[in-house]
């Protein structure tokens, strides 16, 4: 990544682009990755609520919001989503952490 020169910066380090965290990709930080098992998902949206990196993809176009998967370029692999996913069908959680092949 090339850094800006001093003369290219705003005074006082003010950040003028709102919501620019989405431009910062953190997907390569992880060791484990959540695997989304759509048939086990009850659409409770807990994963979306708990994800610290806004990495749960949700489709808002229908009548109800629907989890569609993981935004891998932002997911750090922390596993909170898998830990919070309610085991409503024993052994059939919708999010499972697996070692990512690199």
């Amino acid at each position: 990544m090339s850094l800006k020169k001093a003369s290219e910066l705003t005074e006082g380090g003010i950040i003028t682009e709102a919501g620019n965290a989405s431009e910062y990709k953190t997907g390569d930080w992880r060791t484990f990755v959540p695997e989304f098992v759509v048939e086990n998902c009850i659409q409770c949206l807990f994963c979306w609520i708990y994800c610290p990196d806004s990495a749960i993809a949700v489709d808002l176009s229908g009548e109800k919001p629907e989890v569609t998967g993981i935004i891998l370029e932002h997911c750090k692999g922390c596993g909170i989503c898998a830990a919070e996913c309610p085991p409503v069908k024993k052994g059939k959680a919708a999010l499972v952490m697996v070692r990512e092949a690199k």
Binding site: K4, A6, L9, I14
Partner: peptide
């Protein structure tokens, strides 16, 4: 209308440049 962030973390990559300003 023009949202900003004031006083973000400023480490080894940009702090020195801000002091220059």
């Amino acid at each position: 209308e023009n949202p900003i962030t004031v006083g973000p973390l400023d480490l080894t990559d940009y702090y020195f440049e801000h002091k220059w300003s």
